[in-house]
Nucleic acid binder design. Structure first.
Lengths: 110, 110
DNA sequence: ATGTATTATTGCAATATTGCGATGATTGAA
DNA sequence: TTCAATCATCGCAATATTGCAATAATACAT
């Protein structure tokens, strides 16, 4: 087929995978880092910053917005994007809990 | 075109994105969680555990191996997989540093 | 109303991912 | 050697992602 079989997995597993997917492109990482640094920006800033076409940049913004990790508000003729702190925190904590619960001490592999 | 323009981004941005991509499928999350819980397992265990075909399971294992986060050693007629603790730690720290440096306090968005 | 600036959406082509059956490679046992 | 067990790889089909030009939508001027 070719479509991910989400029903085979738990809600949490799908959640983590979806979060990871939102971060699985360097442009989206760059956008988030830029937003963290500048606190807020408009799409035009990112088109210059990234070097991607406006349509492509807009699409990455859309995916980040769908994932909930950023939010945009209309600011006159342009749209101001910024991190959604609550979701950002959620991401961090979910990844944290995923990575934490492994005891690297007793790794007696095979 | 349709291929990610990696040259536009920094090494670190591509690294984080690649790490995220390795985690961007619920089956791979499930594999890692299972490995964390059981410490080690063979491919056949995962075929039962996941409910995916053997070929598909093997392919997900290959991607995790390519990402470096797991390692496999020949164990008689089967292959024993386990977490690579050093790379696991690296993943954790890279994500940690990515998520940490945002001051959620002063989010005066737009 | 008309024009300009900014962002979103559409439509398309190129590439990547997902999934599986079939086949191949390797190991250990009979 | 022959067989069964186990995992990897190949080849294919279906779906998803990436990227961009062109166009639409929106807001604010004039």
């Amino acid at each position: 087929m070719g479509a991910t079989k989400t029903t085979l997995f738990t809600r949490q597993q799908n959640d983590i995978a979806n979060m990871a997917k939102a971060l699985a492109h360097p442009a989206r990482i760059a956008i988030l880092q830029y937003l963290v640094k500048k606190n807020a920006c408009v799409c035009g800033d990112l088109v210059e910053e990234l070097g991607l076409a406006q349509a492509t940049t807009s699409q990455h913004l859309k995916e980040l917005k769908n994932a909930g990790i950023i939010q945009g508000t209309i600011e006159g003729v342009s749209i101001c994007y910024c991190i959604n702190p609550a979701v950002w925190k959620q991401y961090r904590e979910l990844f944290n809990s995923f990575f934490k619960d492994v005891t690297l001490a007793g790794n007696k592999c095979c």
